[in-house]
Nucleic acid binder design. Structure first.
Lengths: 344, 344
DNA sequence: ATCTCGACTGGAACCGGTTCCATCCATGCG
DNA sequence: CGCATGGATGGAACCGGTTCCAGTCGAGAT
């Protein structure tokens, strides 16, 4: 119902002219345009995106692959993506994919391979060669946000410098005079050195050895799920044992740090007097917890990813070839009350 | 590239037959089907959803309108929706809309009005009359999950019985002998009695007056944002004042409860000895906090919403007209260590 | 042996737009 | 004044499928 032919008839013009008038492409007399627009408004006409994309080959729809929606970082990124895409007139189709498995294959080989999305933004997922190849074959631009090897060939990458983040957080603790540190790392930090958690761990180790600590890998690293309960359990374990406790903890994410703070309190260990804790993310709740953290802006990263993908799609009149590509997104240390000078 | 015509040519059949073979509609000889499928596989053919939906009128795509993605309940619902839709072969297009404003209008009047989604699932948003009408006019089924008036006309509704939840939580505290209760309600609980927070508040008030408490509205209700910092600030305020403190708090959500627990600890008030706290949601972190709560299953609700919407779209061979419609989704009280008998 | 029926297949219309191409016409210029 | 130029418009092809309709053919019924 209410196809463009109806609009054309009502306005007394041809389909071709109606299409030009409404889409703004090509030459249409000002008065004709007005007539067509009036006709369209009168019968409540809205273009069929299907029909349009069938011929233009563009869907104005971006596929987003994301492993979690319920972790703060990912949720923020998703919101940033959505808002930005929406205001650019794009739809966002969500694919919640984590780990491997048939579901994941189905997403890449069927859902994303169809002509329903113009491009793909992958947030915090390591794309397999095969998956990338499948997308490239249908030549869909891919933007990867977070994790992975920066500057590698293949898809456009975007993200903070996680290794620098690990260094920065660790150096903050070292400068406060701490020498007994522990890193609560994310699962798989050692096994996947190029993952977010792997890079943060690497930065931690760098800073430690630069400070002359832990020459033979004695710097402690404990891996745990990057959630609040993950941090809680790990810290309970770590701090509950008798013997020399660490005086400072670098948590791989703010959520882990929250859990650690709570565990410390539970054990009667005062933060920051007995234990300094630093996280990374700039979580919404960091202020409430008084958490010192390395802030990043996930929603800003979402925005940046959209800007990049739209540029790859040739939107926005191509202001420049491809600017500042490669430069990591900004982070900054925010000192609150969870860290202090080490006890003598 | 690689249209169905190519497949047909390669298999030596007509487009019509190729289409029938691949979609499984109509009669095709077994051997022909095999040939067509082999041809499709050989050239890596995948149907164009645009072309298909242009003629069938169905997009196999559902629009989801959700106000937050970064609150636990909503994130879980979203995951549930996504997983279920995916396995039914549907895409999920996300519209992150909260409050009012031009963005919201744009979503309803443009994005959702186009022929790009078959139906709409609205999670925790109050649809305006006008918005509903716009969708109905393009006859798109609408399923509303959470909030609003149950059993009302218009869109299909689905959700837990929030009033009963409020009652249940409150009765738990009353049964433990508490008489000085406070309800940490969500923003707008009093102003919008049919919202989730409004109904929970109502249930609380019901239980209180049934117990003979607060005959003249003396039952305390404090409104705050339904987040952890929201609960933290409100509880700090509430518990920090001198004078007779409440001995029990019913928090409108687990996140609020977590904030309240933390505030109490900060003030040196022991939970549960000095203060009992009960929440609602069954948050992933509830166990870690030892929080007594009224559990619901947001991801299960997402699943249920998808089932309902697919039934409205006439999928699944219509097993029954419309079963158990109207029955609220299940909840249950889970007692942990944040509540105990009132001090004498 | 003829008729009927139903499985199987191909031709062609159609979904709703966009865009190429040709035509028409009013101007600007030599 | 003739002609090139370019804006405005319409006709028609096309994007890639699905589906209606008609036709063929073999098997079972009469």
């Amino acid at each position: 119902m209410t196809a463009i032919a109806d609009v054309a008839r009502l306005a007394g013009v041809s389909k071709a002219t109606a299409s030009r008038a409404l889409s703004g492409r090509g030459h249409v007399a000002e008065e004709t345009r007005r007539r067509v627009e009036a006709a369209a408004a009168e019968i409540g006409y809205i273009v069929s995106p299907d029909a349009a994309s069938l011929v233009t080959g563009r869907t104005k729809n971006i596929g987003v692959v994301i492993p979690f929606v319920n972790r703060w970082f990912f949720g923020e990124v998703l919101e940033g993506l959505e808002r930005t895409l929406l205001s650019a007139g794009y739809d966002l189709t969500l694919y919640n994919v984590d780990g491997a498995g048939p579901d994941r294959d189905r997403v890449f080989e069927f859902f994303l391979a169809r002509k329903r999305v113009d491009a793909v933004i992958a947030v915090g997922v390591d794309l397999a060669e095969r998956e990338l190849a499948a997308l490239e074959r249908r030549d869909k631009p891919v933007v990867v946000l977070g994790g992975g090897e920066a500057g590698a060939l293949g898809p456009a990458r975007l993200g903070i410098d996680d290794r620098a983040v690990g260094q920065l957080a660790t150096e903050h603790l070292l400068q406060l005079g701490h020498t007994r540190l522990v890193h609560l790392a994310g699962d798989g930090a050692a096994a996947r050195p190029l993952s977010v958690q792997g890079l943060r761990r690497h930065g931690y180790l760098d800073a430690m050895s630069a400070a002359g600590l832990a020459p033979r890998g004695r710097a402690e690293v404990v891996e745990t799920e990057m959630t609040m309960p993950g941090g809680y359990e790990a810290a309970l374990q770590l701090l509950g044992q008798p013997g020399r406790r660490p005086t400072a903890v670098f948590a791989a994410s703010d959520e882990v740090a929250f859990g650690a703070i709570r565990a410390a309190e539970r054990l009667g260990i005062s933060v920051p007097h007995d234990l300094s804790i630093v996280g990374v993310d700039g979580h919404e709740y960091a202020e409430m917890f008084g958490l010192t953290t390395v802030e990043q802006s996930p929603s800003g990263q979402g925005r940046a990813a959209v800007d990049l993908v739209l540029r790859l799609l040739g939107e926005g009149a191509e202001p420049d070839p491809l600017p500042d590509s490669g430069a990591p997104l900004p982070t900054r240390l925010v000192v609150r009350t969870s860290t202090m000078r080490a006890p003598l």
